[in-house]
């Protein structure tokens, strides 16, 4: 229940930020949204079982589902890479306002 609400809160915050003008805010929004997506993935493994999936310490009856965890780990790292990429683009030019195309100094309609 709490995780479901948390997903909702994160999605709401993420969407709100993504609709803003500043590219930095948009990146933050994506970041929140990815937290939400990670939680959703984990809860697909049914959160009633919460022991760490280490097969020498935890027994089969109480272990959490390892597969969604592997997915989420991958997702976190990819999100990080995307964040770096977009942040890099945010610093081109003077401002990160997305209502104007970033001026790269090149003429695209030639």
């Amino acid at each position: 229940m709490t995780v479901a609400i948390l997903v909702g809160v994160l999605v709401a915050g993420g969407v709100y930020l993504m609709m803003q003008r500043s590219l930095v805010r948009i990146v933050f929004g994506v970041s929140l949204l990815s937290h939400a997506a990670n939680l959703l993935l984990l809860s697909a493994g049914v959160l009633a079982w919460r022991q760490e999936p280490l097969s020498d310490r935890t027994d089969l009856a109480s272990t959490a589902d390892p597969l969604p965890q592997a997915f989420v780990l991958t997702a976190i790292v990819i999100t990080f890479a995307i964040t770096i990429l977009v942040l890099g683009f945010a610093v081109i030019g003077h401002n990160d306002d997305t209502h104007h195309a970033p001026e790269t100094g090149e003429d695209h309609d030639a």
């Binding site: 994160l10 999605v11 709401a12 959703l40 809860s43 589902d65 597969l67």
Partner: peptide, 22 residues
């Protein structure tokens, strides 16, 4: 944003946590 958040919560509630172990 709030609509999206509510939708996400509802979907999470309805679609997850209701089955046996994978």
């Amino acid at each position: 944003a709030i609509a999206a958040g509510v939708a996400a919560t509802v979907v999470t509630l309805v679609l997850t946590g209701r089955r046996a172990r994978s």
